[in-house]
Design a protein around this nucleic acid. Sequence first.
DNA 1: TTGGGGACCGAAAACGTTTTCAGGAACGTA
DNA 2: TACGTTCCTGAAAACGTTTTCGGTCCCCAA
Lengths: 346, 346
Amino acid sequence: MSAPSSSDGDQPPTRTVTLRDVAQLAGVSIATASKALNGQPQVRATTREKVVRAAEQLSFSPNTLAQGLITQRSGTVGLLTSDLEGRFSIPILMGAEDAFGSDQTSVFLCDARGDNVRERHHLRALLSRRVDGLIVVGARPDARPSLGDLPVPVIYAYSPSDSPQDLSLVTDNVGGGHMAVDHLIRHGRRRIAHITGDATYGAARDRAAGALNRLGEEDLPLAGDQVWYGAWSEAWGRGATRMLLRRDPTVDAIFAGSDEIARGVLDVLHQEGLDVPGRVAVIGFDNWNILAANARPPLSTIDMNLEQLGRLAAQRLFAAIDGTLGSGIETIPPRLITRESTAPLD
Amino acid sequence: MSAPSSSDGDQPPTRTVTLRDVAQLAGVSIATASKALNGQPQVRATTREKVVRAAEQLSFSPNTLAQGLITQRSGTVGLLTSDLEGRFSIPILMGAEDAFGSDQTSVFLCDARGDNVRERHHLRALLSRRVDGLIVVGARPDARPSLGDLPVPVIYAYSPSDSPQDLSLVTDNVGGGHMAVDHLIRHGRRRIAHITGDATYGAARDRAAGALNRLGEEDLPLAGDQVWYGAWSEAWGRGATRMLLRRDPTVDAIFAGSDEIARGVLDVLHQEGLDVPGRVAVIGFDNWNILAANARPPLSTIDMNLEQLGRLAAQRLFAAIDGTLGSGIETIPPRLITRESTAPLD
DNA sequence: TTGGGGACCGAAAACGTTTTCAGGAACGTA
DNA sequence: TACGTTCCTGAAAACGTTTTCGGTCCCCAA
């Protein structure tokens, strides 16, 4: 059953087929075969035809290693992430992966697990593999140490590099906060509170800043009189909401710093019998689908456009490979997702 | 500011350093340099020392492409997944990635997005890159078409191949169902119901089979008189729970086919004022941390040990690269995670 | 017949390694 | 002095491509 003989007769150990074999079968030289397959003009149409036919007859596939060796281009890029399990790396990674399109470029995935020495290790391996470029995806949206001068272009995604020489692509958290509150205001809310995560995260502070900013434009006060910083968890969402309702029962909208927190908020609002969105509107952040779409009611939220960030990173890198790379920090605008947890006041 | 000159003087375009440079600096031939760096025995200790020093002085890193060309081994494997965003691929991918350890082997990540032609496309690219092996991760735990005979070993993870010639590694859903119900029984539950997802998924049927199996061993009936198949969503968890309570109010435990469904179950139980776990115990499936650990109360659940599956896949592949691969389907045992949603009846 | 020119083809070098194998140096022995 | 041995070293081939450049062939005009 498990005999390795194939369907049509015995072939010897099946040496992998090379350009030489194709050339031989087509009755031309290796050089001509190469040119024929690569669409070089200086080969007669009939000859090209012969070669192409021979190639597909042998189902020839060129050895990319050899090609890379001579063209000095491996057709690969490295994707160095710090937390693969994190929900942020994945969309970025997907965006990048499909922007490269697999025709020309494949991506090496490396997860440093937030460990510095593992990162250097991976870096060595990638350079040794002669990647044409590198995308570095951080675990949280605060600055991370630069990798310094490398022989290939590098793009920092999500976490910016701490060196202004590098090119970083990040999401616009200030803009996101602004957008969330703007949405609430447009729906007639006036008593808006903000519950969010760990204040040591730049993202938390930026989102809050954007929110306050928008409130300021309307001369509205922040309901609850403070930004409720805490943890990025449902439990904190629940706890903070209870405190908030005690301090200010007139609140008519809550902007949560993450969808996770928003779930906690919703939970307590239900428990207290406050209708969402009739009595209180809720908006989250991240558009983490499993949480936002399944909430009761489905949660309006801010999407950071991470796949787009990944695609953009890939494009920038691609352009940089035979050109030169810019520097500085580029931000990606977020996107409002409206679901049922926000609506005009009756 | 963005001038490309480095800190110590102008170097010309910085040709990447090759073994030839090392040899030259050390005053030996390329052959000797190679042998020195690779720990071959036939080189004098002092010579080796010289070479090593030269290498690190130039921070030489060998060109893996060239090495691969001659050794006929690229030191890479392909990871072909069908749904990257899915929560199942990621842990597997992580397990595999860290089992390979980056020293020797790097992994090419390819996401076929469930599209067949994209899969063939990626496959061509990977073979052309001369990967030493392939891990194929499916999107759902049902059989998928085999890739057929390839010049490199292939392992199917999560979704088994439909050909018995191939080696597949899958989770033990029957065992998981058995384990969940066993846990409930040990905690004194007798009126156990099962709410799960789409019946077209083998996983749903297998988990149910395992559950019924364990109930049968105790001669216990299934509370609610049926397995509640539906969708893999919170909404279905809520709907099914309402129906279940109407049909059989005596139920004292619910086994949910996924953590998502379990969240819906919990939601309705709260709403109905039924204490968890005092009155009804709830156990989920998947150990999807964000859902299970943040639930109120935190959710006991079955973990499918996917990282271990990934690690195992990597190990098997590694062994197969210079040996021969087995065939058939190998299952990974699941693991019970106890949290507060299950406890002995008072 | 000779020469010029275009179109096409192939020999060979190159990419950066590893590995084989011949040979040189040092040394002891006859 | 001549000869084996034992150690170490380096020239060269090989891996599978791409690319350069000289050469052949053919056709046409002079």
